[in-house]
């Protein structure tokens, strides 16, 4: 199908972009890579009045390391970050998670910030941000604010971003105790959305941060006592019940919980056995 008619705007600066958002609010939608939004428009699941295109724009580019974070600008694509030469050293978790985000062709255009803004509960990038305890930077005409991952994503495809705000950057923590990382997911085919995705970061040999995507309505990150196999199994069992999950066309909630119990110990073990 084809999108319903809208005004197309391609701003040259962040200031211009937030001006338009301030003017149109809810009626405007930012388009970054378009890898989710264009499909939504083509299917007429959304009918915005104004499209604000920031895709590929050099004013919104930039990958930098500052203040203990890897900071990724709004137009940086998933492949640009994945091919950034220092990624494996700087953020081993992202280096392991990014190859699972869609396909080579969609990563060429899809952005890191677009994936976070889209907020799909099974997406790998929001899961990584949650697991690392990262944050996002939102800018509007009113100013700039920084929102922690767990306060940003508020549910399935919903975030605490105000309609006049644009995400200008995502910040992934890169502290020394976040380097031992593992990532696994189960999907029908590589590149499809995850039925369940797990990210693990071993802070010590007995304490692991586990991020779970695809079970609840948003990624959930928690600290797990990994001092023994039974402690891990207990923690995963409790988590599976708490997060519950839901049935959809791809899998039942029960299958997803079962995946968590079976795959959980494997990713946790993998993270712990990574060289520091």
């Amino acid at each position: 199908m084809k999108p319903r008619a809208f005004d197309y705007v391609r701003p040259d600066t962040v200031a211009e972009a937030v001006d338009i958002l301030a003017e149109y609010g809810d009626d405007a939608r930012i388009m970054a890579g378009g890898q989710s939004l264009m499909a939504i428009l083509n299917l007429r699941m959304a009918e915005p009045k104004v499209i604000v295109d920031i895709g590929g724009h050099t004013a919104f580019k930039g990958i930098k390391v500052a203040n203990g974070f890897l900071e990724v600008g709004a137009s940086v694509t998933q492949n640009e970050l994945m091919n950034w030469p220092d990624l494996a050293k700087t953020s081993p978790l992202l280096a392991k998670a990014l190859p699972w985000v869609g396909h080579f062709q969609t990563r060429n255009r899809g952005t890191v910030c677009g994936s976070l803004s889209h907020a799909d509960p099974s997406s790998e990038i929001p899961l990584s941000l949650a697991t690392l305890g990262g944050e996002v930077v939102l800018r509007s005409k009113r100013g700039e604010r920084v929102v922690a991952a767990e306060e940003f994503q508020t549910g399935m495809l919903s975030t605490s971003r105000e309609p006049d705000e644009m995400m200008v950057a995502a910040r992934f923590p890169i502290a020394a105790n976040l380097k031992r990382a593992a990532f696994r997911e189960v999907a029908r085919r590589h590149g499809d959305f995850a039925i369940l995705a797990l990210a693990a970061v071993a802070e010590t040999d007995t304490s692991v941060r586990l991020g779970i995507g695809g079970l609840a309505d948003r990624p959930v990150a928690t600290r797990i006592d990994a001092s023994s196999k039974s402690a891990i199994a207990d923690a995963l069992g409790t988590l599976a019940w708490e997060l519950e999950g839901s049935d959809d066309i791809h899998a039942t909630a029960r299958y997803r919980r079962d995946l968590l119990r079976r795959m959980g110990p494997i990713v946790i073990e993998e993270a712990i056995s990574c060289a520091a």
């Binding site: 083509n42 969609t106 255009r109």
Partner: peptide, 23 residues
């Protein structure tokens, strides 16, 4: 026309991308 089948793939500024997801 939603990015899944790949038959519309072209190069935009040299990189492979879905033409159906591009205005």
């Amino acid at each position: 026309e939603h990015g899944v089948c790949g038959c519309c793939t072209v190069l935009i500024d040299g990189v492979a991308a879905r033409a159906c997801l591009t205005l």
